[in-house]
Design a protein around this nucleic acid. Structure first.
Lengths: 186, 186
DNA sequence: GTCTATACGAAGATAGAC
DNA sequence: GTCTATCTTCGTATAGAC
């Protein structure tokens, strides 16, 4: 409704939210129009290639937040334990306490898979490298650090799916709470 | 093409496969028609309420296979270790070595979420109880058995998501391989 | 039980006025 | 930059012949 002054950034944020919560194929232009307060034609003004452009913008926006907030916390100053605690704290914010889905899950299915799978794979790999680097500092060899980093990503993704299926974010919150110690356990 | 003699069971299996791989919203009647070799009208003959009926049939079919094969293995004769090994072996078959998605993931988003979320939650809870029961036999108290059972489901779901995003089923296969020992570890 | 034909609305996209 | 109008295609669903 307050369409008048809505920055592009805010528009993209709302679009992102719709894609996260309804998936690519489940998000219609009508829905995006309502979520942003912009008419369909106005959406095409900002995103000439329509839905695909909007999804690309959502991918870029969420990627930027992830790098600037979540990865920044993971790569901040401090001990591995401190860095992992900062990391999981930011993850919780990023996923709204587990109440929203991950684009990696949502965009790896249906019409979006064809468009974005390559980027999704790169992002997963990149996150895995970053987590593994912290675990290397903590003393694990490269293979074990990589294995644990992959487990961390698997656990995050899985807890989001299970939380969504149960309609209860407790699994997500528990997983994040236990993650630093689990990753560093002997 | 070989539409002539395709049992209802085979039809439902093919429909299920489409939903698993493209999601509910991403699966059109045109796609289902092609996958089954049946014209759209013929699909309505078998499923009067259209797509929703087909999804319901897919849910029922996959649930039956899960109970008869996967849960049966989990609840078979033998030690907890033997039962968990039988379980993960059947899981691998069930998810086609990690090359297909889980309806719990796929149907908890978009248009299917409204229709099926209640059932998805029940199925997750039921599986959790079954795994926890095995872990109780292995000597874990109820709380710890439940916690580990939830972790198992989270890990399975997460490995499917990560495998799909990476376009590589190695994470799924590794997770299943390690699962029995992980669940029983002191 | 399957086919052809068709109705009908939704969805994605575009044109042009303002 | 937003709106109205329009267009096309797709998706869902139904009717009726065979």
């Amino acid at each position: 409704m307050p369409a008048a002054t809505l920055s592009r950034e805010e528009v993209v944020t709302r679009i992102l939210q719709e894609f996260r919560n309804h998936g690519y194929d489940g998000t219609s232009l009508a829905r995006l129009s309502q979520a942003t307060g912009l008419g369909r034609s106005s959406l095409y003004h900002y995103f000439p290639n329509g839905k695909e452009d909007m999804a690309t913008a959502a991918m870029a926006a969420v990627g930027e937040v992830f790098v600037n907030e979540v990865l920044a916390a993971l790569n901040s100053e401090g001990s591995p334990s401190q860095r992992l605690h900062a990391f999981t704290k930011q993850l919780s914010v990023f996923y709204q306490d587990g109440q929203t889905s991950c684009l990696t899950d949502v965009f790896s299915m249906g019409g979006a898979a064809v468009l974005f799978q390559k980027y999704l794979a790169l992002r997963v790999s990149n996150l895995m490298r970053n987590i593994a680097a912290v675990l290397s500092v903590a003393g694990f060899d490269k293979a074990e650090a990589t294995r644990r980093a992959e487990n961390a990503i698997i656990t995050i993704q899985g807890s989001l799916v299970v939380s969504r299926a149960l309609g209860d974010n407790a699994p997500f919150l528990r997983v994040l709470r236990e993650m630093p110690d689990t990753l560093l356990a002997a």
